[in-house]
């Protein structure tokens, strides 16, 4: 490396005026560098996305030659499809409960670990985060064994604290199956939420706490008046991430129940798969995909808005 030259290029600002040959070459460089990403992305993400919207207008099957234009017929069918409504309701149940439990519990745990304990902080962090790096497939199979209706750990555990396990089984009772799945989801992801919040808390200025201590504030008071306001953005981000995860959920439900018993735990992701690949209704599956896409894009847009904002903290 030679000495740095102090001729700063003005970065990322608009430069118009006449376009020199050198500038044109630079532009070309810019396009060439971005081209591989653009080509892959357009072919395998953007094009399929529009393709999904287009296919949602057809009665179409993947394994046969059937393809018939039905306009908005698939969407009309959706409104009368009890299973679709159930899958939507399940997604919303997962969304609401996940936000309350994962963010609520994550916040409490993070606060306790951040301010309450001194020894074993690292250990608590490691153990709570460990399920996050496991695949949903491994987690699902592991919990299927735990939920076994005759010899599973869950039954032992519930009996040990003096309760009766559900007679139809944790994953066999249409009324509780979605909550059984939620327990697993919360088990896996609360640690994730906790770590993000903890990272946010650790960047809160210690001086603020010290000043409050001089004023004789209790820990609870400090939590509500210093910690919470300081990590407001982190909390919003975490809530959005949790919501997006809840809308997109597929692997865990597929592995634990395949959407059963009798569609009781169907979510949009599994219902798309079921229609496209089990009952050969790919057009209908595309219509459900469009609904899922709308949810995901709205939430994703909110998240990007939040993260795109220039921020001063690291």
């Amino acid at each position: 490396m030679t000495d740095s030259l102090q001729t700063h290029k003005p970065l990322a600002t608009t430069r118009r005026t006449r376009v020199s040959a050198r500038q044109k070459r630079e532009w070309l460089d810019g396009y060439v560098l971005v081209a591989p990403a653009i080509i892959l992305f357009v072919l395998l993400v953007v094009y399929p996305m529009f393709s999904t919207i287009y296919l949602s207008l057809f009665d179409y099957g993947l394994t046969d030659a059937r393809i018939r234009f039905v306009g908005l017929g698939n969407f009309v069918d959706l409104t009368q499809d009890a299973v679709f409504w159930r899958s939507l309701r399940n997604n919303l149940t997962i969304l609401v409960v996940s936000v309350i439990v994962q963010v609520g519990l994550g916040l409490i745990l993070a606060a306790l670990i951040d301010r309450g304990i001194r020894w074993g902080k690292g250990l608590a962090r490691t153990l709570n985060f460990a399920p996050v790096v496991m695949s949903a497939v491994a987690v699902g199979i592991l919990w299927q064994l735990i939920y076994d209706p005759t010899v599973g750990l869950a039954n032992h555990f519930v009996r040990a604290i003096g309760l009766t396990p559900p007679t139809q089984g944790w994953l066999g009772d249409p009324n509780i199956v979605i909550y059984s799945i939620l327990v697993v989801a919360c088990w896996q992801y609360t640690g994730y939420v906790m770590i993000i919040i903890l990272a946010g808390m650790q960047s809160v200025s210690q001086e603020l706490y010290e000043a409050a201590e001089i004023d004789g504030a209790t820990e609870l008071r400090k939590f509500f008046h210093i910690t919470l306001p300081s990590i407001r953005n982190v909390n919003i981000a975490v809530i959005l991430i949790t919501m997006i995860g809840a809308i997109k959920v597929f692997d865990l439900v597929y592995i634990l129940t395949r959407g059963g018993p009798a569609n009781a735990s169907q979510v949009m992701g599994t219902y798309i798969y079921y229609n496209a690949f089990t009952v050969n209704q790919a057009g209908y599956a595309s219509a459900i995909s469009v609904v899922l896409l709308v949810f995901a894009l709205v939430l994703g847009f909110l998240q990007l808005r939040l993260s795109y904002r220039p921020r001063e903290d690291a």
């Binding site: 608009t14 630079e26 532009w27 971005v34 996305m49 999904t52 296919l55 995909s289 896409l293 994703g300």
Partner: peptide, 29 residues
């Protein structure tokens, strides 16, 4: 780092893609 025309559009296009769940494009893919 390179200030070429259409830069912002391309950036936003690429970034927006991260909200697309793979399940919504399983059939066309």
């Amino acid at each position: 780092r390179i200030n070429f025309p259409g830069r912002v559009f391309i950036y936003l296009l690429l970034i927006a893609g991260f909200a697309i769940p793979v399940h919504t494009v399983l059939v066309p893919l």
